[in-house]
């Protein structure tokens, strides 16, 4: 009986260790740890070009994450990309005339939306639209423009 009891305790520890390892993988290693952005408010922004922006990409202001990209769709009238952003509820004092741009983290990193605060007294609320946007930098376009202006300068 004693033998049986200690076996059960050790097996219990083993199962607990395995589950703890799985929990650590889920919370510390994977993106499950930051599924806290359900509560918040939605704003949308239209971009001419979003480059490689993906759903769940971070939205930052001064480098601090203030929200996430919730959905990306194409506007059937203007043919612009319509990005809806889920803002965390604690950042509820963001001015109405805030501008949004798409940046790349590092040279080859993922793309994210950077917000720059405006000066308006009113704040962004659920359902608002960010009007001032700057499209993603597409490397081929930049190189094309550079070559074009260089050719112009030579003449």
């Amino acid at each position: 009986m004693m033998q049986n009891k200690s076996t059960e305790i050790i097996v219990g520890l083993f199962v607990a260790a395995g589950l703890a390892a799985l929990f650590m993988l889920a919370m510390k290693v994977s993106n499950l740890g930051d599924f806290t952005d359900e509560a918040g408010y939605q704003v949308t922004a239209e971009f001419e070009n979003i480059g490689g922006l993906k759903v769940r990409a971070p939205v930052t202001m001064a480098g601090v994450r203030v929200g996430r990209v919730a959905d990306i769709s194409l506007d059937p009238v203007t043919y612009n990309a319509k990005v809806s952003i889920n803002m965390y509820s604690q950042f509820d004092t963001i001015p109405l005339d805030t501008s949004a741009s798409i940046y790349t983290a590092g040279l080859l990193g993922e793309q994210y939306i950077g917000l720059v605060a405006g000066a308006e007294e009113e704040f962004l609320q659920d359902g608002d639209v960010i009007d001032l946007t700057q499209p993603a930098l597409v490397l081929e376009q930049v190189i094309g423009q550079f070559l074009y202006s260089k050719a112009e300068g030579d003449e």
Partner: peptide, 8 residues
């Protein structure tokens, strides 16, 4: 369980 421990 063992594989999870291994990865962690």
């Amino acid at each position: 369980l063992l594989a999870a421990i291994f990865s962690a």
